[in-house]
Each structure stands twice: as structure tokens, then as C-alpha cells.
């Protein structure tokens, strides 16, 4: 299964990169969300998959799945959510201020001031 999840994670990241390179802010946000999925999957795979029971203490269980990547991914999921929320609101505010969601159009003149 690790074979497949690594490929899947790679594809997710590649597609996310394609989305992030786009001009539209909403597509960029989609891209970041998908990128974090790919990273989480990759990370979980590194801890080896399905090598034991769910890491909840039980007297009858010998081996557990690796709990450390899971804990770190849990943190990462929540942070990724915070990031998505922030850039979504940023996109909203940018649209309110500049009237566009196209990052090409919001460049402005860097030498204005």
C-alpha cells in the first residue's frame, strides 16, 4: 500500500502545484488545501502503514501503529485549516479593496512610492 500512497501523495502535490501557479486566487487557495493533503499522506506513509492496531492502549494488543506521525499530522491539519481560513479572508478583502481576484491585475506599480 505504501507504493500507492506515495504515488498518490506525489500526484496530489503536483496537481496542487499546478493550481497554485494559476492566476486566480481561489484556485491558489484550492492548491494550498490540496498540497497539505498530499503532505499529510506522505508523512503518514513515512511512519509505515497498518503495522499494528490503532494507537490506543489495550492489554490484548502487541503492536501499535506509529503514533508520532499521527500526532504531528493532527497538528498540521489544524494549522492548514488556519492557513486556509486566513488566505480565504485575505482573498475576500483583496476583492473588496481592489475589485479583482486575478493576481496579475493586483500587482500595481512597485515603484509607486
Amino acid at each position: 500500500m505504501e507504493l500507492i500512497t506515495i504515488i498518490l501523495a506525489g500526484i496530489l502535490m503536483g496537481a496542487a502545484a499546478y493550481l497554485m501557479l494559476s492566476k486566480n486566487l481561489i484556485r491558489i487557495i484550492f492548491g494550498t488545501a490540496i498540497f497539505s493533503h498530499g503532505v499529510h499522506l506522505m508523512f503518514l506513509t513515512m511512519g509505515e502503514l497498518k503495522r499494528g492496531a490503532v494507537p490506543v492502549l489495550d492489554e490484548n494488543v502487541e503492536a501499535y501503529a506509529d503514533p508520532l506521525p499521527q500526532a504531528l499530522i493532527l497538528t498540521a491539519i489544524v494549522i492548514a485549516f488556519a492557513l486556509t481560513a486566513i488566505i480565504l479572508v485575505l482573498a475576500l478583502r483583496i476583492y473588496k479593496e481592489l475589485g479583482t481576484n486575478d493576481i496579475e491585475k493586483m500587482k500595481g506599480d512597485p515603484y509607486a512610492d
Binding site: A82, A85, L88, V89, L92, K96
Partner: peptide, 13 residues
């Protein structure tokens, strides 16, 4: 709190 703050703020806009 943070989730609800974000959601209500966006809804207010």
C-alpha cells in the same frame, strides 16, 4: 473560538 470568530466575521461582511 477561532473557528466561530472567523465564520461569523465572514458572514457579517
Amino acid at each position: 473560538g477561532a473557528c466561530l470568530l472567523i465564520i461569523t466575521l465572514v458572514a457579517e461582511e
